[in-house]
Simulated scan of single mutants.
Amino acid sequence: MCVLTPVKFRLQLFEFEDLPWFPKVIRAGMMDYLRFTISVLRIYQPIVPLLRAAVLQAGQPNLLELCAGAGGGTEGVWRSLRASGLPLVSVTLSDLYPQPAAWQLLAERTGGGLRYEAAPVDATAVPAALTGFRTVFSAFHHFPPAAAEAMLADAVRQQAGIGIFEGAGKHWYELLLAWLVLPVVQLLTTPFIRPFRLSRLFFTYVVPLIPLCTIWDGTVSVLRMYPPEQLLALARRADPLGRFEWQAGKVRNPLTRSEVTYLVGVPKRN
């Protein structure tokens, strides 16, 4: 069926949350919903074994999450890594548009296992003081090819392992979900999202900017995603000397039957 086939082209359209002038309150509401949905559905649980192996191979037990947004899914991945034999692993959340209010909740709930960098962090030029195995969840598609390559090249330059994870497989049916199913889910679940914000209710039910912008950004996210072969091509250009081992592909979530697209790079050992 057509809806089950992959979307083979990539369109560099805009997303509202990328725009510098976009109202912070709307961006925060969209990020809160994304965090809530990813966490409840455990979208990124299938990549835990892959991430654990890469972290051990790189010898970098702590994670630096770039482009963290509201931290969607990070707590679940962190808890699973701890349960899998990495009891001391920690995560530092960072973003070009930091969300300390959402991150503080995660830090308190994890007893400091999740911490955050309050200053803006450019994922293409990470400060040397921020160390650890780099992860990017649900955000790599925001970067056009030149910037995406720059992000990977910065990891190679600083010898920091990196894992890119997108919570979709780039299929036509995912566009249908973004248009027909997820908006209904958003309307039903918004009252249960924490921390509670009156602004989130107002811009969901009275002036529905949050769901409308979420529909647009969700559609564009699928269209902007890089399939595995393009991820590998970016990695090879970012690492012309072959200093890293790279792998890319997709893994399926047995609970939701959805796919996660990934790229993992680990420094080669001399």
Rank of each mutant, 00 (worst) to 15 (best):
Y205V: 15
L51I: 02
L86M: 06
A235E: 02
V7M: 07
P127F: 01
E149L: 00
L130E: 09
S94A: 08
D239K: 04
D95E: 11
L81C: 04
T256Y: 01
L66P: 07
P127D: 05
A129E: 12
V136I: 03
Y226R: 05
A102Y: 03
A101M: 11
F143E: 03
V3R: 04
G59V: 05
L66I: 15
Q159W: 04
R269T: 12
T189L: 13
K170F: 10
L66Q: 00
F22R: 10
T204V: 12
A119M: 00
G72A: 13
Q230C: 01
T190H: 00
R52K: 12
F137T: 08
D32F: 02
L114A: 05
V126N: 13
L255I: 10
A233T: 10
F137K: 08
V7Y: 11
R224I: 07
L241D: 14
P100Q: 03
A129I: 01
P6I: 10
F133Q: 09
E174I: 01
L263T: 00
W172R: 04
F203I: 06
L177G: 15
F196K: 08
V220W: 05
F244H: 12
R134A: 02
Q186V: 03
F165R: 02
G169S: 10
V126H: 04
L176D: 09
F137L: 14
V126F: 06
L13S: 11
P46G: 04
R82A: 04
G161D: 03
M30T: 13
G73A: 05
L51Q: 01
V266A: 09
V91L: 10
G29S: 00
W246Y: 15
L13N: 06
Y44Q: 11
F203P: 11
T124V: 12
T256G: 08
